[in-house]
Structure formats: structure tokens, C-alpha cells
Design a protein around this nucleic acid. Structure first.
Length: 132
DNA sequence: GCCAACGTTGGC
DNA sequence: GCCAACGTTGGC
């Protein structure tokens, strides 16, 4: 899940605590489809776009998709996620690009997509990178 | 600040 | 239903 940190950052997510906060404002059908596929307990990487351009932490879905209250059209959905942890070492887009095992990720192929799936193998690779 | 990629809108 | 024009995102 991608967010511009001057709009919504991992620090703000952390402050939102265990109740979490809505991930709203998504106005793209592909991203909305990905939101709808999320289930309670699913974990997501939190990526800072534009500023930092790095994965900074992990959040967990605590409420599955519902109508996005910030969307007047009623077409788009939000989910609620709670802060789980910050990566010891943020993983930059540059590092992800360098790793050939991660070259299939939407993060690289579809830079404009704000919510995207990740396979478990890639998840493990990045998770391990973030612990060093 | 620029621009590529891509999504949306609206005229036809 | 097509496509040109336009708007937005996000990396560089």
C-alpha cells in the first residue's frame, strides 16, 4: 500500500494505534479491486511514495472493505489497517529494482498503482532485507 | 520541474 | 464504441 508521507505516513499510522485508520481516498478501479481482495489479518507493506520511495513498515487489515466515506460518488471502497511494525531498515525502490527476483512486482511495473498484491515469496525476500 | 504512463471524459 | 484531449501519479 502506497502513500505520500506528507499526506499519510507510517508515523501517523503508528499514532492511530491498534484501532487502525481507514485507508481511503483510492480513486482507481484496479486499486479498489485489490482493496476488496483484502481479508482481516492480511499484512501489507507500507510504502512511502514520492518522498523516500521506500517500504517503511507493515500494517494489518482489521476491517474489510466498506464504502469510502470520502468518495461522494459512492463507487470506491476503503479498508481499515492498523500499524504493526516499522522495518529496522527501510527498503528503497532502488534496492527492490536491483533484485531480479522482485522485477515482476507491480511496484516496479505499474508505478501509478497505489494498492497492489504481492506474492509470499517476494514478501519474504523483502521482509528479510528489512531486518538486516 | 519535467515527462512517461496511464486513467478518465466527452464529442462524434 | 472510438479516440483525442485532458488530468493525475510518481519516478527521475
Amino acid at each position: 500500500m502506497k502513500s505520500e508521507p506528507d499526506v499519510w505516513s507510517i508515523e501517523q499510522q503508528k499514532k492511530a494505534g491498534i484501532k487502525g485508520a481507514p485507508w481511503d481516498g483510492v480513486r482507481n478501479y484496479q486499486a479498489a479491486k485489490n482493496l476488496k481482495a483484502m481479508r482481516n489479518g492480511d499484512r501489507c507493506f507500507f510504502y512511502h511514495s514520492n518522498i523516500g520511495k521506500e517500504i517503511v513498515g507493515i500494517v494489518e487489515v482489521v476491517k474489510e472493505h466498506y464504502l469510502d466515506k470520502t468518495d461522494p460518488s459512492g463507487r470506491f471502497v476503503a479498508v481499515t489497517v492498523k500499524f504493526l511494525e516499522k522495518l529496522v531498515k527501510p527498503i528503497t525502490l532502488e534496492e527492490i529494482k536491483k533484485n531480479k527476483q522482485l522485477s515482476h512486482l507491480s511496484l516496479i511495473k505499474q508505478s501509478r498503482l497505489s494498492v497492489m498484491p504481492i506474492d509470499s515469496k517476494s514478501w519474504k525476500i523483502i521482509n528479510n532485507m528489512g531486518k538486516i
